[in-house]
Design a protein around this nucleic acid. Structure first.
Lengths: 255, 255
DNA sequence: GTCGGCTCACCACTCTGTGGAAAGATGGTG
DNA sequence: CACCATCTTTCCACAGAGTGGTGAGCCGAC
């Protein structure tokens, strides 16, 4: 019988699951949230939410002030441990450095997570974009370097991904449908790298390639970014080749 | 008797507490850990640990491979949300930037957490230390800029802190006892800034001041770091004054 | 002052989380 | 290749941890 409330994946450890739900609500709310608001968004009774938040606060994963609840310092250690312990990241850092040095562009590494991607490392090129550290930033798959990740998923996944893509407007005003994106992904697969011009930020451009993994999945990708003037069309093949070399080097040093 | 390892702070939500214990074990183990090892360190039965890790893995807070368990990508969002949502950090970033620009030194912001401190932001000065991003790194209070935080705790806390400090050897080989540290902290309180020369890293030096908070606590501090040559003794008072101005500016923009 | 919304403490019921024990993997050794 | 030590996973019946409805305090708004 198709259970009505699908939101119940039937797992052991309800309380833990709920605590994580609460944390996720906090992670995505960019303001401090009041108790009742958190409860509403997490779909939990207020009393329960309050108890969970109490524990999280005592453990430093959540902070509370007059305005409401916000993520806590304790969360930082986890991220630090993840970044420090990730072998691909360790392998990638010097290579990104070289890449940024050689191209003068900003080089970054990101990783797929569901149907989005997370920036894991970033090395500024010659003209450092005065941009705060975006490590941990969650970006969509359907624009910019995300297209590389979308292109190299396995067939089923790509299909599922495309199925849920709505027609969307890119930063330069172009409207892209799911079918058009599908065509673009095919092109990416053919040449082995993705390019973007004004996809996500007007005036910016990027080239990205997947980091090959032993099981032929592409969960991670590297990218160079710069202004459209920095990345003229005729430079793209060369950048693609350079990126491929770098990605291969990362892959070899990781696995 | 100062409960040495009561380990039972008598809280509601045992399972959540335990899950956090498990996460903390993972955060501090710098290698992948096997199930049994995690269970041992967290003081939990293996089966229980297994169950917890299962949930955490399903939720992306933990990753598992043949070698063992390690922190997972999911942890990054929390940290990102914390860093993005922290008002002091937002206020501090441009000021650190100016500070690094004006002094040519590396400027950083950190915050106290228990008897350690965490690096929250860092802006490289003229000669960028070729060091990976240490954001989230946990450092002791008894050396380097930590002394500023230790000096400006309230009296009780300072006493408690000093009581648990063991005589320790600094990076330059000098042995410091609790009493000597106490004297040093008094000096820090008198002049309003702390200085370090070869405390934590041989050949390095730093100056730090607390960021004043409305309730007169100093939970956060800012610091400039460079080689000992970059920070000659006669330059210190000037740096101290500059830091105080910056700290005040951060404080004003935050609260 | 009055009102509505938010937060927190309480407590009896019940379903969740527990952990011992045994089966299944894994890998090192002679 | 057979053996053994060690680590991982699965199972299940019981106990108590977690739940959430309820109502008392606390604001701040009007």
């Amino acid at each position: 019988m198709p259970d009505v409330e699908a939101a119940k994946p039937a797992t052991s450890m309800r309380s833990l699951e709920r605590a994580i739900d609460v944390l996720e609500v906090l992670d995505s709310g960019h303001h401090p949230l009041r108790l009742s608001e958190i409860a509403r968004r997490a779909g939990l009774p207020v009393a329960t939410t309050q108890r969970i938040l109490g524990v999280l606060e005592a453990r430093g994963r959540v902070e509370k002030d007059a305005v409401g609840y916000r993520p806590g310092v304790g969360l930082i250690f986890g991220a630090h441990a993840y970044l420090a312990g990730n072998p691909m990241l360790t392998a990638a850092r010097p290579i990104l450095q070289d890449l940024a040095g050689a191209t003068g562009l900003t080089a970054s590494l990101f990783r797929r997570l569901g149907w989005s991607r997370v920036v894991l490392a970033r090395v500024e090129g010659g003209t450092p974009l005065r941009y705060e550290l975006p490590i941990g930033e969650r970006l969509p798959l359907h624009v910019g370097g995300g297209k590389t990740l979308a292109a190299f998923m396995d067939e089923e996944e790509t299909a599922a991904f495309l199925a849920q893509v709505e027609p969307h407007t890119r930063a330069d005003g172009v409207v892209v449908t799911s079918a058009e994106l599908a065509a673009e992904l095919a092109e990416v697969r053919a040449v082995g790298y993705s390019t973007a011009r004004g996809d996500r930020e007007p005036g910016m451009a990027s080239v990205a390639v997947p980091v090959p993994e032993p099981d032929n999945l592409a969960m991670a990708a590297i990218q160079v970014t710069g202004s459209q003037a920095d990345i003229p069309l005729e430079r793209i093949p060369e950048l693609g080749a350079e990126l491929k070399r770098a990605a291969l080097a990362i892959s070899r040093r990781t696995f």
